[in-house]
Design a protein around this nucleic acid. Structure first.
Length: 642
RNA sequence: GCCACUUUAGCUCAGCUGGUAGAGCAACUGAUUUGUAAUCAGUAGGUCGUUGGUUCGAUUCCGACAAGUGGCUCCA
């Protein structure tokens, strides 16, 4: 007999060799039907794998993320089984669970998959699922595994095997399909009740674009049809928040084939939002001691040779234009221009920290496949600034920048974001990163220290730094789940040296400043794209292109509404009148759909009593109020940016 | 840039297997003068993304290109 200890502390005795599923059954049949996998002494195990010694056991169901991941990983095997039955000779690479579902990468030779194939595959998977095939685990000696896949001519699995040792190789078989796999798996295929194959994509082997491109199929599965339906409905809902859809509906921006891909035309509504954001940025930057500068959109090649951008990023810049025997590039970043402003006049330690800011226009030749609405464009406006300081000032400056981020997030009510401390990879020094190991270590430690001291939650990631230094990226997610860097705060120990920037220190010696690159609001493009999705189009009043819509009940009341409009405009409120001879219901409907925060319904009663009836977007009738009081409230709301 | 898919009126979308196109909303005109999410009628609007090819004939079939979409790679 062995002792099994449960998470609640209870202990029960079972025969040696008992499985997690047996244990579940001893508790209840219903539970046993739900158990997908188990944790045995903290290690994830197949539910039907025998336990031979005393152990702590946790039964894992769909409610647990580990359960979902296992379910989806097993689903990937089920899909592979279906694929192999349809396309014998297919070779598989890896098929992991992802955040929502799973994929499997495979080499189908010359066969091109189409969406019709997905439908057929789905059918086949459903059929195979109903067979209730158990996932059977088998430990295999390396030599045997190698010969198995050698016979199949499967170079991909042989590649995986080359990194594994005897004793850690297991095969899993369900039905007619056997795969090299660490496991664990759910008990049997019958638990997979609802299947949806989402898309076909090309994916480079090992994620390297120099390698062969494999076919990747994405799918998602659920233990019930109901959950799949709910998930698909949720996807539909998310699409309604997509900034590309909202941007069109609310006339924020447009694009045009004759202008070019990734080039945004900001319509009047979008421009109002831009101007409000700039106003906010200018206010807070002025308060934080920044000075504003303006620099040109282009510069000579030599600037980017000095900055070191050309060797690293020439491919991401628009090709140069030749003028008077000189090459000029559209700027892809503002920093070199700003460095030249720093260098224009001699600096002493008394001038530091020297902070200059610009809503700079940058052009980046993003790969065509990378463009994505407002989130990834080729012409962008950065909320950019550079802070030149000495090492003693660094912590304070870096901290102040982080505080500005947090202040903005509060204003916009952003709570779902991750601060990512992006570090370099030592093995890529001299390639992706400037070859200054000591400076890398020093600055990375400084940044980490500031984050810890200020209690800012963050995650560390390797190989995400800028080429000139470590950075903090703020990661956010689009409505359809794609991840983006919204804002960035970077340390640069390199450009000061490259541009021979200097200030005279207290000892009357020349010293190179540290530079902080920061863009708390990222770019107009990405930030407004993000805000559209964040607010689902319902901007707070201070950001709204049209803050008040006046809706006269009939033509008779238009003179009064014009008077009202003048008063509101004089108070700095953006206001429009719907003068059409439509019924009030229609005017309200359209004002609601355009997400106008305040609607003022004006009829006979209002004109006679010189009051206004207020309706709030999404909230309905808000009662009657005096004109003065309304103006006082709304201007207060706008001023406080609530 | 790579893989897959898509492109029909301002918008959302119909249009079976080839015989040059339709709806709703929007726009315009007229009627209506309206009390908190769509008043009625009429009019106009499209070389069916561009460009080659197959065909007596292409929105429809095939190719190229462009733009967009889902991924991969990339992302200063």
């Amino acid at each position: 007999m062995i002792k099994i200890k449960f998470p609640d502390g209870a202990e029960r005795e079972y025969a040696e060799g008992v499985s997690a599923l047996d244990v579940a059954k001893s508790i209840s049949e219903g539970l046993a039907r739900k158990v997908l996998v188990a944790e045995v002494d903290g290690e994830v195990w197949d539910g039907n794998r025998p336990i031979h010694k005393d152990a702590a056991l946790k039964l894992i169901t769909w409610d647990d993320n580990t359960g979902k991941a296992t379910f989806w990983h097993s689903s990937a095997h089920l899909m592979a089984e279906a694929v192999e039955s349809m396309f014998p000779g297919v070779k598989f690479w890896v098929g992991p669970a992802v955040e929502k579902g799973f994929y499997y990468d495979m080499d189908l030779g010359d066969k091109k998959l189409t969406e019709d194939d997905l439908v057929t595959l789905e059918k086949k998977m459903n059929e195979l699922a109903k067979a209730n095939s158990a996932f059977v685990r088998k430990e295999v000696p390396k030599a045997e595994a190698v010969s198995y896949f050698s016979e199949k001519g499967d170079e991909y699995k042989l590649d995986l095997l080359s990194n594994l040792n005897d004793g850690e190789i297991t095969f899993y078989t369900q039905g007619a399909f056997t795969d090299l796999c660490r496991g664990p798996h759910i008990p049997h295929t019958g638990m997979i009740k609802a299947i949806k194959l989402m898309s076909i994509a090309g994916a480079y082997w090992k994620g390297d674009e120099k390698n062969k491109q494999l076919t990747r199929i994405y799918g998602v599965t659920f233990p019930s049809q109901k959950e799949l339906d709910e998930y698909l409905l949720m996807l539909e809902e998310a699409k309604k928040r997509d900034h590309r859809k909202l941007g069109k509906e609310l006339s924020i921006y447009t694009m045009d084939d004759d202008i070019g891909p990734g080039l945004i035309l900001w319509m009047p509504n979008g421009t109002i939002i831009i101007e409000e954001l700039e106003k906010l940025a200018k206010e807070s930057e002025e308060a934080a001691g920044y000075k504003r500068v303006v620099t040109p959109h282009i510069a000579k090649e030599n600037l980017y040779i000095t900055s070191g951008h050309l060797p690293y990023y020439a491919d991401s810049m628009f090709p140069p234009m030749e003028l008077d025997g000189e090459k000029y590039y559209l700027k892809a970043m503002n920093c070199p221009h700003h460095h030249k402003i720093f260098a224009a006049e001699p600096k002493s330690y008394r001038d530091l920290p020297y902070r200059i800011a610009e809503y700079g226009t940058c052009y980046r030749y993003e790969q065509s496949g990378e463009l994505f609405g407002l989130m990834r464009v080729r012409c962008l406006h950065m909320n950019d600034a550079h802070i030149y300081c000495n090492k003693e000032q660094f912590a304070q400056e870096f901290k102040a920048v982080n505080e500005m981020y947090i202040k903005y997030f509060k204003i916009f009510g952003v709570d779902k974001y991750v601060m990512r401390l992006s570090l370099h990879s030592p093995e890529k020094l001299g390639q992706k990163y400037v070859n200054e190991p000591a400076l890398w270590k020093e600055t990375e430690d400084m940044v980490r220290k500031v984050l810890i001291e200020t209690g800012t939650p963050f995650v560390e990631v390797q190989d995400e730094a800028a080429f000139y230094g470590p950075k903090i990226d703020v990661q956010i997610w689009s409505a359809i789940g794609r991840e983006f860097t919204l804002a960035t705060n970077q340390v640069d120990f390199n450009s000061g040296l490259k541009f021979k920037l200097e200030f005279t220190n207290q000892a009357n010696e020349g010293e190179t400043p540290l530079i902080i690159h920061r863009a708390p609001l990222g770019t107009h493009e990405r930030f407004i794209g993000f805000l559209l999705e964040h607010y689902a189009g319902k901007f707070p009043t201070w950001l709204c292109p049209v803050q008040v819509k006046i809706l006269p009940i009939s033509d008779k009341f238009i003179p009064f509404t014009q008077e009202l409009k003048q008063q509101l405009r004089a108070a700095g409120v953006r206001v429009e009148i719907d003068e059409r001879s439509e019924k009030i219901g229609k005017k309200i409907r359209e004002a609601e759909l355009s997400r106008t925060p305040y609607m003022l319904v004006i009829g006979e009663k209002e004109v006679n009593e010189r009051v206004i009836s207020v309706r709030r977007q999404g909230k309905g009738d808000a009662g009657t109020i005096s004109i003065d009081e309304f103006i006082k409230n709304i201007t207060e709301e706008i001023k406080n940016r609530v």
